[in-house]
Amino acid sequence: MNRFSGALDRLGRAVLAGVEEMGKIILLFVSVLAWMFRPPFKLHNIFKQMEFVGVKSIFVVVLTGTFTGMVMALQGYHGFRMFSAESLVGGTVALGMTRELGPVLTSLMVTARAGSAMAAELGTMRVTEQIDALYVMAANPVKHLIVPRVIAGVLMVPLLTVVSDFTGILGGYFVGVHILGINSGIFIKNITRLVDLNDIYNGLVKAACFGLILSLIGCYKGFNTYGGAEGVGRATTEAVVLASIAILISDYFLTAIMF
């Protein structure tokens, strides 16, 4: 009986902690919104973060995009061959990339690369009292540290998704046309036939949401770090795990709403 109530107790605490954390993240989002529109605007900070989140993620995004497109073409080909519908591979790759894999994989890669870095950077600043120093100098850390990162996330992830979509389709084209021998004209025709402008744009809207999620969670976890170097490590891990889960779950709901 005692053990049972203990388990209940732990379950309740876990749920409450989860809800509390979510509430805190939302509060952080609200204060980010509030500070975002309060001058002065430190454009240089934003550009630095955009460079870090966007420009420096290009390589990894191109890599994942290309190979995802390639493997989709390969897998799709074997499936479609059963129905003699190999020509649909192009459209399938393009549709899959623009709607789903482009935004999700890009966000996950950016989470791993930049979201974790945000958590680690802010975490280190927290444990080395740099955040306290900001407070002491009457400078708001949300404005100085979190706003530029969230802006960068929201703007750069969609842009990276465009790159990912494009290279994914290129990768699919390469495999489909040059390796599997699908007619290139039909391959491209099916892409333009099946993919709608809305597929691309909704994919980008999703990507922007994911960019918000990953930067917000990365910053939240870093900002609330405690416990020295170990704490920074923990915050980083938690940020990546939580952001990835949040991206995948919200992906479902965003898809349900949009498509």
Binding site: E121, M125, T128, E129, D132, A133, V136, M137, A138
Partner: peptide, 20 residues
């Protein structure tokens, strides 16, 4: 509070310089 803080300066234990 920020107005009050402008009267203050603080030297942290590890200096807390912004390393970026």
């Amino acid at each position: 509070l920020n107005e009050i803080r402008k009267k203050f300066g603080m030297l942290f234990q590890e200096a807390a310089l912004f390393d970026s």
